[in-house]
Nucleic acid binder design. Structure first.
Lengths: 339, 339
DNA sequence: AATAAAAACGTGCGCGGGCACGAAAACAGG
DNA sequence: CCTGTTTTCGTGCCCGCGCACGTTTTTATT
C-alpha cells in the first residue's frame, strides 16, 4: 500500500507536489510531473479511500430524491432502499431529503428539483419524466456542479452521471418466457397493461410480443390498458374475462395487479388461469402463496433506491465516475417457493 | 452530526475521556461516565465511519480465504466475488490470501487454516467441512481474536461471526415449484444428485421431496448419486434415461450438470425432457439459451464471495458485529430471457 | 544588474477517532 | 504531614488525503 508521502520521498519532492499532479491542479514542472507519474504507475498507486472520505468530511453532503408513484407499492420498496442507504451514509455526514410527487406532471417535478436546489443539495437522485425540460434541467445542474443519478426511468440523452434501473424490454421477454414454461397446451393470453404514455409499460409489452414468434403456444387474445390503479384493473380484468371465456392466462404488465387478481378470483377462474405479474409487493404475496399468481417478475426495488445514493456519494467524495454508465438491475423471478 | 469533541465540550471533559467511555476502556469516574452517556444518548451519537476506518489503517488487515471446490465452476464465480471485494478493500490497506483445497479432507482444511494463521491473517472466510474439528478450530481462533465468517456451508454451532449462503432446503423446494410450473401433464422425474455426505445436496433433495405432497403431478421415478463430476454425471444420466423411458423431467441437484445435459442430448430426448439445474455457469448457459435446460436455480455466488470479506473488514475496523447473524443469499431463478 | 512577475514547490492544518503517555487528583499508610 | 500508589483525566500524535498559504526558484522586463 503506497501513500502520497512515499511517492513524494521517492521522487524527491514534497507531498503537495505529488498531490498537485494526482489531482491535476497544475503549477508543476513537466519534468517532475513525468517523474512522479512514472513512480505512480510503477507502484500502481491507489488513493486510500478512508483518507479521501475523511478529507471530504469538511463538506457536509446533502442529497435530494425526487420520485413519483405515490400509492404505488413498488416505490414503497424503493423508499426502503433509500432509507437503508441514508442510514449508512449518516455515518459519513450525509443527509437525504425526499420529495414524492403524486401527479405525473413535468411542472411538479421541475418545482421539486428547484426547491431541493434552494435547500442546497449537492446531488440529486430522480425518477424522471420523459421530457426535454427535465433533461435540460439535469444538464443545467450538472454544469453547476450538482450531479444527478436517474433511477427506474432513464434519460439517456441527459448529462446524468448514471442510471440505475431495469431493462424493461427484457422484463417483457422474461414474462413471455415464463408463460412458455407454463404452456402445457396452448395459452390464450389476456394482457392488462398500464398507461401507454409511460415508457416502461410499452417496452415491457414490446418485449413480450417479441417472443411470440419463438413461442408458438402463446396467443394474445386481447389487450386492455389502465392508469395504474387497482380499481380500474379490477374492472378491466372482469370485462376481459367475461368477454373471452377462452382466456387461460393473464399477463399483468403494470401496477394494479392486486385488483386484477381479485377479479380473477371473483370470476372463479383462478385455478384455470396462469398469471404472471410484476413487482413483489405485500398485497400480492398471499396470491403467490396460494398459486393464484404463478410467477412474479421484480426489478430489485431496494437496489434502485440504495444504489443511486451510493453513486452520488462516491462521486462527490472521491470524484470518481460510477464504474459502468448503466447499472441495470437484475430481472428477478419469484414463485411461491423462493419468495 | 455530532463528534467526540462536541460531546467532550458539552460534558466539560476531554476527548480522551469520552473515547474511553465509548470504547469501554475503563479508568473513568462512574459519575462522569453517566454524564457522558447521557449526552451521547440524547444526541444520538454515531461514530463517523471515515474517521474510524482511517484510524484503523494503522493496522494493515490481512484476510485468509479457504474454500474447496477446485474444478467446480460455481466456485469460480465465488472467487470473482472475492476478487471484486479484494479490489475494493485494497483501497483500505487490506490484502487477501486465498487457498483452494481440492480434496474433501478435513485435515487439508485444518492445514490450510493453520498456514494462513502463520502468515498472520487477521480474519478468515471459509467454506467449512461439516466436522467438529473445524468447528473447534474456529472457536479457538475466535478466542485468539481472529474472527471467521463461513460461506456456502455453515457451522451454526461454531463461533463464526456470520454465515453467508443459501438456505439449501429452500433451493430444493424452488426446484419442485419450477417443475410444477412446467407440469402440463404428469412429470416422471429422475434425480441426479451429488455426494450425499455433503449437506447441501441432501438438504436440496429433502426440500424437493417436501413439496411432492402439494404437487401431485410430480413423481420421482429414480434417484442417482455421483461425486460432483461431469463424466460421472454423463454416465449416470445415460443409464437413468435408458432404464426409464418414461422419464420426461430431470432434476440435477449438484455440479456436473453439463455432463448430464450432454447425455440427454446424446439420447435425443432434450425436447421431451424438462430440466431444472443448479448454478448459472458458463458451460450450461448455452443450454439455457437452447431450451435444453428450462430453468436454473442459482445462489448468488458473487455475493457469497464478496460479502464475507466486507463483514470481516467492518468487524475489524469498527468492532461491529454483522447486522444479522445469518445472511441468506437469495434463491435466484434463471430462464433463457433473464440470464 | 536590479526588479517585478510568474512559475514551481514546501509546509501546516483539518477531517474524526484510537491510543500511548504522562499529568493531576484522590486515596492509603506510616 | 509526607510519601507512595491507584484512579482519573488531558494532550499529542497518528492514520492518508486535500487544500490554502507562504516560500523559493525561474523567467521576463527595463
Amino acid at each position: 500500500m503506497t501513500t502520497i508521502k512515499e511517492i513524494a520521498d521517492l521522487a524527491g519532492v514534497s507531498r503537495g507536489t505529488v498531490d498537485r499532479v494526482l489531482n491535476k491542479r497544475g503549477s508543476v514542472n513537466p519534468e517532475t510531473e513525468a517523474r512522479i507519474m512514472e513512480i505512480v504507475d510503477k507502484l500502481g498507486y491507489k488513493p486510500n479511500r478512508a483518507g479521501m472520505t475523511l478529507a471530504a468530511q469538511k463538506k457536509r453532503f446533502k442529497f435530494g430524491v425526487v420520485m413519483f408513484g405515490v400509492g404505488n407499492p413498488f416505490f414503497d420498496d424503493v423508499i426502503k432502499g433509500f432509507k437503508e442507504r441514508e442510514d449508512e451514509l449518516a455515518g459519513y455526514n450525509c443527509t437525504v431529503i425526499t420529495k414524492r410527487i403524486s401527479a405525473f406532471g413535468v411542472r411538479d417535478q421541475i418545482d421539486a428539483i428547484n426547491s431541493l436546489v434552494e435547500e442546497g443539495v449537492n446531488g440529486l437522485a430522480i425518477s424522471p419524466q420523459n421530457d426535454p425540460l427535465i433533461s435540460a434541467k439535469i444538464d443545467d445542474l450538472f454544469e453547476k456542479g450538482i450531479p444527478t443519478v436517474t433511477f427506474n426511468t432513464d434519460l439517456p440523452e441527459s448529462k446524468r452521471i448514471a442510471y440505475v434501473g431495469s431493462n424493461y424490454f427484457q422484463c417483457g421477454q422474461t414474462a413471455a418466457g415464463l408463460m412458455n414454461l407454463m404452456a402445457g397446451s396452448d395459452l390464450n393470453i389476456g394482457i392488462i397493461s398500464g398507461n401507454s404514455k409511460i415508457l416502461c409499460h410499452t417496452e415491457r409489452i414490446a418485449g413480450f410480443y417479441s417472443c411470440l414468434d419463438e413461442y408458438q403456444k402463446l396467443h394474445v387474445v386481447d389487450f386492455f390498458e389502465h392508469d395504474d390503479d387497482d380499481f380500474k384493473s379490477y374492472d378491466l380484468t372482469s370485462k376481459m374475462l367475461a368477454k373471452h371465456p377462452e382466456i387461460n392466462a393473464l399477463f399483468f404488465a403494470a401496477a394494479g395487479t392486486y385488483g386484477g387478481c381479485k377479479a380473477v378470483i371473483a370470476a372463479g377462474r383462478e385455478k384455470t388461469t396462469k398469471i404472471v405479474t410484476f413487482d413483489k409487493i405485500d398485497t400480492t404475496s398471499e396470491m403467490l402463496k396460494n398459486h393464484v399468481i404463478d410467477a412474479t417478475i421484480c426489478q430489485q426495488p431496494r437496489l434502485q433506491g440504495s444504489l443511486p445514493l451510493k453513486i452520488l456519494f462516491e462521486y462527490l467524495a472521491t470524484g470518481e465516475m460510477p464504474k459502468s454508465e448503466y447499472n441495470y438491475t437484475a430481472v428477478e423471478i419469484y414463485i411461491k417457493e423462493n419468495s
